[in-house]
């Protein structure tokens, strides 16, 4: 559907700016007007960039017009902000409540056969949504979860693109399920997110595969207890914890880890020996090193 976005916004928003210029009580009107416009633009599949441009010029035109008529600048600015926020949220939520209905486990009309749930950490979901919208369809639930009507593999590369675009401190945790089992997918995404956060993993896109071992350990009481016993003697000794983490980051390379910690290579070897004495696990063995790292990461979870 082709229509003039600027004109639509201008027509819809005019009464709100007018009200804000000379009376109080424009707030409710702003919410309903912006919500209606946002949903309409979303279902018309307008790109977010296009909408933002139209929104800017509409705001400028209307504000100037009202100021010329002697309107209150402060009230006009407030109205403009409220309209923009509400418009964005309705626009991004897409088809009124579809995301919430899908996440709640019902499969309403218009739902896809399966979705990938994305749990977002480190950025406002609403900002992330616009980045996804530039690349394809996306739903935003009130819980802050994103729903991509795509298989995990496709969703994964999409997430990687968006993650790169944001750069810096953004974590995505993804899980895919058929639409009838979305509650499970949401739980899985949240579980991955919690593990990634407590393990101190770097920003990125995570699937269950990336935290499978940790999640299996968490679910197995004997293994969880044993991990606690491995960790206990290390916790009394922060220098050893730091050494394990540095070695992990260096892929087990002792020379690289020593450089990173500004210590001599022989110091690393001595600390490794201490760690083995205390835990029975050798940082020189990559599998043991990974278990030591898991124990430290899980320590934050307790």
């Amino acid at each position: 559907m082709l229509f003039d976005v600027g004109r639509l916004l201008h027509e819809e928003f005019l009464p709100v700016y007018r009200a804000a210029a000379d009376t109080d009580g424009w707030e409710d009107m702003a919410v309903s007007v912006a919500h209606r416009a946002g949903s309409r633009l979303a279902s018309a599949k307008i790109s977010i960039a296009h909408m933002v441009m139209a929104l800017r010029s509409t705001d400028r035109l209307l504000t100037e017009a009202m100021l010329d008529d002697g309107g209150d600048a402060r009230a006009l600015a407030a109205a403009g902000t409220a309209l923009a926020a509400e418009l964005m949220s309705a626009f991004c939520a897409g088809d009124d409540g579809l995301a919430d209905a899908v996440l709640a486990g019902s499969a309403p009309d218009g739902a896809a056969a399966f979705y990938t749930v994305v749990s977002v950490r480190g950025a406002l979901p609403i900002r992330v949504v616009s980045a996804f919208r530039d690349r394809g369809p996306v739903l935003l639930a009130t819980s802050g979860h994103l729903l991509l009507p795509a298989a995990e593999a496709a969703a994964l590369s999409l997430c990687l693109d968006v993650q790169k675009e944001f750069g810096g401190e953004v974590w995505f945790s993804v899980a895919e399920r058929p639409v009838a089992r979305m509650a499970l997918a949401r739980r899985e995404a949240d579980e991955i997110d919690a593990l990634v956060a407590s393990l101190g993993r770097p920003p990125g896109v995570y699937r269950i595969d990336d935290v499978l071992l940790e999640s299996a350990v968490m679910e197995t009481p004997e293994a969880r207890d044993e991990l606690g016993k491995v960790l206990a003697p290390l916790l009394a000794n922060p220098v050893l914890v730091e050494t394990v983490l540095a070695l992990l980051e260096a892929d087990g390379n002792r020379a690289v880890a020593a450089k990173k910690l500004f210590i001599h290579r022989s110091t690393i070897d001595y600390r490794s020996w201490q760690i083995e004495q205390l835990t029975g696990l050798s940082p020189v063995n990559p599998r043991d090193l990974a278990v030591l790292g898991t124990a430290i990461g899980m320590g934050g979870e307790r």
Partner: peptide
């Protein structure tokens, strides 16, 4: 061997849904 030496393997064998996923991988 103690449990800690095979900790991850042990946990995964006790969680069939995880071990199936890894076996497929």
């Amino acid at each position: 061997y103690e449990l800690r030496h095979v900790l991850a393997d042990f946990a995964v064998l006790r969680q069939p849904h995880v071990s199936e996923r890894l076996a497929r991988m």
